[in-house]
Design a protein around this nucleic acid. Structure first.
Lengths: 227, 227
DNA sequence: TACATAAATTAGGCATGCCTAACAAATCAA
DNA sequence: TTGATTTGTTAGGCATGCCTAATTTATGTA
């Protein structure tokens, strides 16, 4: 008999570690993800991370050798993906049925994702019509943990004259999301690149008959698909 | 300026104490509610309760003198009522939109009630159409913490020949709720008292053209209104 | 190669909230 | 009124998960 899933036995904190580590690993590619990095991302001290990871290794959620690069086990990855599924389904619910705005959903979804009920998530998914994307455009993994990787093209990678559609954002901080909203941009917005400033990488874009200039940092954080 | 609400600063455990104490105080009337009783109800040791209550007294949530009867402060009561509101709104949501059954809602609502978001509760309430009763027939307090006390008449207080409607249940344990469902009873079921057995207090009731005999313990746990 | 720096771990503490065991206060009954 | 029983509190421990400080290992550079 295969291992009975231990999904329901994890603490909120253990779940947060899995999510954080999964996120860093996704972004890092083949680069090393280390204790300090994880600590910084979670806003806690490296020593705390060391201690917690030690415990999680004995639970077979995290894999790494002493002083080596961090990694998730298959089990750890699977749980992390389910947490992301839950998070994004809740975000969708808050956005589509609870009148939450783009930038409000994250904080509450962060709490809701820790609710333990397989049935609830299955029903929520059904209720929402099995959505494929959350309000930020991020792909929602299915119940089996399968999900499609987005081609990661940012606004920064386009050239003057290119046209594209906004599909998601890299940074989900409230400050960034509110800025995006204030500009008048939303998911599926059609954008055209007008001009790229060689000096500082800032870009002039146009959409909805407006034309504005945005920073290098901004265009690095917006994922698009060319049209 | 009145005290800024500390609702959002409480831990899950503190909230559970408030709920438990509120529940016992409601049932006790003027009788003393003590440490042992609270401990038993929460399934923990009296010593743990002593320790926790000590802390909660300093936070002005609980009032009582050393070795005296327990009570909630106004603040503590207000928070407890809001927790009950949240619990019952979530139960309603699970029942009406997530296909949960009568006996499944409690456990998950127990988790959901600890989610911190004033906006979410306001929106949920609106989404559900400002329901007055939860799936067990219990009254849902409004956002101001006001709620109507049910006249507490149980099946046991009726006499042979009386007719009534089921409005709620006292005990929300899964075992009891499943038993009620299995009998074919639900909220608003019309029941007539056929016969009361003097020997053991068991009662023969009829509803939906069925006639069954139920125990004293059963009729003590079912709230009804006469019709 | 050897030292300086950066990264990771261990050691020792603290807060929360649980436990058992020991003790103190209150209550009931003879 | 005093002794026995019940109820409540304190004392001392444990697990979780955080912290800072000290130490160990790894790495990069002269």
């Amino acid at each position: 008999m295969p291992n009975k899933s231990i999904h329901t036995k994890l603490t909120k904190n253990e779940e947060d570690y899995l999510k954080a580590l999964f996120h860093l690993l996704s972004e890092a590619g083949d680069n090393k993800v280390g204790t300090n990095q994880l600590a910084e991302y979670m806003g806690i001290s490296p020593a705390s991370v060391s201690g917690m990871l030690k415990k999680m290794k004995t639970k077979d959620l995290v894999a790494s050798e002493r002083y080596g690069k961090l990694d998730l086990t298959e089990e750890g990855t699977a749980i992390a993906v389910q947490l992301i599924r839950k998070h994004r389904l809740w975000e969708t619910f808050l956005y589509t049925h609870m009148n939450f705005t783009w930038d409000e959903v994250h904080e509450v979804a962060e709490q809701l994702e820790h609710i333990k009920s397989t049935k609830l998530i299955a029903e929520l998914d059904k209720f929402l019509g099995h959505p494929k994307r959350d309000p930020h455009g991020a792909v929602i993994p299915n119940a089996e943990g399968e999900y499609q990787l987005l081609p990661k093209i940012t606004l920064a990678q386009l050239e003057a004259g290119d046209r594209c559609r906004l599909v998601s954002v890299k940074d989900s901080s409230v400050a960034f999301l509110q800025y995006v909203s204030r500009l008048g941009l939303a998911l599926s917005s059609e954008i055209q690149i007008r001009e790229i400033e060689a000096f500082d990488g800032s870009v002039t874009i146009s959409f909805d008959n407006k034309e504005i200039n945005v920073s290098k940092k901004f265009v690095d954080n917006v994922f698009v698909e060319k049209i």
